[in-house]
Structures are given as structure tokens and as C-alpha cells.
């Protein structure tokens, strides 16, 4: 029971975690991986890899001054797109609530716009 253990350890007095050998690591079960979240992180990793390959074939990151008046490179645009997508999804969940895939489609459009104009 990780939670009672946590409670005792943090806010109680004793906090005896169960005895383990030094090399008896339990690294992954508590992280509670699911294929959905794992694929999300793989997607992020892929994005970064694509950026690296892109950089290799056309170095410099294509810097320019976009509509926001900021000097941006490809990496900045990726960041703006990803952060923006997070907010689009959250806004959709908060305001509409169902059919989240529509938000995903909006995000794809948003990606294109950001990479073109920002």
C-alpha cells in the first residue's frame, strides 16, 4: 500500500519503508505506464528527432520574425505549437467536453499555421 506508506513516512512519525536490498530497485511499477501515455511521449521524442534530422539537412533553423514580432526558429515554433495544442485541448474539454478528436483536428491546423506564420 504505497499510500499508507507515504502517509506514515511523510506526515507521521515512523515512516518505515519496507525493507529492501540495495539493488532491489522498483523503478517502473509506480510510474503506472499505459500505452496511451507512452505513445504520447514517444510522439514528443519523435518530434525532437525529426527536428534533429531536419536541422542536419537544412541547418540554421530557418530563423525569421513572425507575426508575433518575435525572432523564432523551427524549435521555437515546435514549442509554441505543442504548448498551444495543450491549451486548445484543455479549452475544448472545459467548454465542450465531448468529441475531443475535433480539438485534435484544430490542433493540426494550428500546427500548420504556426509553422507558416509565427
Amino acid at each position: 500500500m504505497i499510500f499508507t506508506k507515504l502517509y506514515a513516512a511523510t506526515w507521521g512519525d515512523v515512516g518505515k519503508a519496507k525493507e529492501k536490498g540495495f539493488f532491489d530497485f522498483d523503478l517502473f511499477s509506480w510510474m503506472a505506464w499505459t500505452w496511451q501515455t507512452a505513445s504520447f511521449f514517444i510522439f514528443i521524442a519523435l518530434c525532437i528527432t525529426v527536428m534533429l534530422i531536419w536541422e542536419k539537412y537544412s541547418p540554421g533553423g530557418n530563423p525569421r520574425k513572425g507575426i508575433l514580432g518575435l525572432d523564432t526558429t523551427r524549435g521555437d515554433r515546435l514549442f509554441v505549437s505543442l504548448l498551444g495544442s495543450a491549451f486548445i485541448h484543455l479549452a475544448w474539454l472545459g467548454l465542450v467536453g465531448s468529441m475531443l478528436w475535433i480539438a485534435t483536428i484544430i490542433c493540426v491546423a494550428y500546427f500548420v499555421i504556426v509553422f507558416k506564420y509565427v
Binding site: I2, L6, A9, A17, L27, M31
Partner: peptide, 12 residues
Amino acid sequence: FFQFYSSVNLFD
């Protein structure tokens, strides 16, 4: 953090 450091036996 609590779970991570517990899992590598560094808690406390």
C-alpha cells in the same frame, strides 16, 4: 519525487 527516491532506496 517521494516515490522515485523510495524506489531507488534513497528515501530519508
